[in-house]
Design a protein around this nucleic acid. Structure first.
Length: 416
RNA sequence: GGACGAGUGGGUGAGUGGCUGAAACCACAUCCCUGCUAAGGAUGCGUAUGGGUAACUGUACCGAGAGUUCGAAUCUCUCCUCGUCCA
């Protein structure tokens, strides 16, 4: 959630920044007005309530002194009706404001480039040079099936399209990757956590998936619970509604979870293979930091993910997302794209975002800065998407006969 | 699944209708005193939000929500969580 007080104070400035993300200025004006109306309604209600409280106190005194209370009671009863009305007005305005404000995306950082979509993202640097193949490299689904690593049909049989099953070395490699990534992150100072894969509405509101993106989430039928689309949700919300002491910051955490996405609106995209699945494994990084250190932490996380790819000998590049490609909660995002020789292109394998205080404001995560409580900054990043890493290994480490080498760092994890 | 009990500020914990935003103790902060190894004293110390330059002040919050009442931490109902016992 954006800072409504700031919007009120510096409407021009905030509005200008949000227009870069395609937010309609009229909507912002409406929010500003609603915000002011709500304040008005609150003030009115509180004045009435104060009178009521005062009269109630008097009431108690009258009774103790044995005075006649009938006149006072009439006054108090009358005021009570007005309070009920005032409260109802306040409640309605609160609801209206929230509905509007919760749907406004985060303000992009000033150094985020303008742009429409992913074509306008800006490459920062390339890491490792893709190797030359003496043959035409195959795409991963071909290799996966040929080696018996992944069975796409049986995944569909068990669930529906965009589900798959891993067998043998494919399954072992997944597990090896998860362990390798968690160990790697732990050595970089991220504490490992294991969290629920189901979360409630409040958690998803805290990180920004709800209320706007409910269509992308799998919902449990008989309870108000959702399957997590990313570990970012449970891990960030670990500290929801808490005031952290300064010496506990920064919090740097890593978690492995399955992730679940309906991929609504992705019809026809990446239908083959395991680039875009409804369920996938991911190792996530989440940091909670003071505003002063969040930029450093951000770079740290990008470096961690990039080094992970380098350790796996996977060529990749870093790109800054433009305003049009930036996610709802992010102020800034750097994507890591891994080279896929079979597809002859770079594909997203990790996305590191600084949401600044956007999620913290929604989730009420604060820290004590001296006497004052301030909102923290929250950051998240994948490190990495396991399925896509497996895809990258298959395509980059393939031989002409279709066999696949295993990156050296994974050998200990596979008993090789 | 059933029965009973509990949920209060950073912690322990008092509080069964008004004088309680909440005793006391601990922790913490600032100041003072003392000066032989640790102790004594004073003051302050929840969160959110509105008004005010500020001092200060209004409102809300005692697991969550609803209700009774002029007035609720305290009474009623529903839910959640934890504990104990039973199946």
């Amino acid at each position: 959630m954006i800072d409504l007080k700031l919007l009120q104070k510096d409407f021009e400035g905030i509005s200008k920044k949000l227009q870069r993300k395609g937010v309609d200025e009229k909507l912002l004006e409406k929010v500003k007005i609603k915000f002011e109306e709500l304040k008005e309604a609150k003030a009115h209600f509180e004045t009435l309530q104060a009178a009521q409280n005062a009269m109630s106190k008097e009431f108690g005194m009258y009774k103790r002194e044995g005075k006649d209370i009938s006149e006072l009671k009439a006054k108090v009863d009358e005021n009570k009706i007005r309070i009920a009305d005032a409260l109802e007005i306040q409640r309605l305005r609160q609801e209206e404001l929230e509905a509007l404000a919760m749907a406004i995306p985060n303000i992009p950082d000033d150094d985020v480039p303008d742009g429409e979509d992913e074509d306008d993202n800006i490459e920062i640097k390339k890491v490792l040079t893709p190797k030359e193949f003496s043959f035409t490299p195959k795409e991963h689904w071909e290799l996966a099936e040929q080696n018996g690593w992944i069975d796409f049909e049986r995944g569909v049989k068990l669930a529906t399209s965009r589900f798959s099953v891993s067998f043998g070395m494919g399954a072992r490699l997944e597990r090896a990757l998860i362990n390798f990534m968690l160990d790697f992150n732990r050595q970089r100072g991220f504490e490992e956590v294991s969290v629920p894969a189901l979360v409630n509405r409040k958690a998803l509101e805290g990180t920004g998936q709800l209320p706007k993106f409910e269509d992308d989430l799998y919902k449990i039928q008989d309870q108000e619970l959702f399957l997590i689309p990313t570990a970012e949700v449970p891990v960030t919300n670990l500290y929801q509604d808490e005031i952290l002491s300064l010496d506990k910051l920064p919090k740097r955490m890593t978690a492995y979870t399955s992730c679940f996405r309906k991929e609504a609106g992705a019809a026809g995209r990446d239908t083959r293979g395991m680039i875009r699945q409804h369920q996938f494994h991911k190792v996530e990084l989440v940091s909670i930091a003071t505003p002063g250190e969040s930029d450093i932490i951000f770079n740290d996380m990008v470096t961690c993910a990039s080094d992970l790819l380098t350790a796996l000998e996977l060529p990749h590049r870093l790109v800054t997302l433009c305003t049009g490609d930036l996610g709802f909660s992010a102020a800034k995002t750097i994507d890591l794209e891994v080279w896929l020789p079979g597809q002859n292109t770079y594909r997203e394998i990790s996305s590191v975002s600084n949401t600044r205080d956007f999620q913290a404001r929604r989730a009420k995560i604060r820290f004590k800065n001296g006497k004052k409580n301030e909102l923290v900054h929250t950051l998240n990043g994948s490190s990495l998407a396991v399925g896509r890493t497996l895809v990258a290994i298959m395509e980059n480490f393939q031989n002409s006969d279709g066999s696949i080498d295993i990156p050296k760092v994974l050998h200990p994890y596979l008993g090789l």
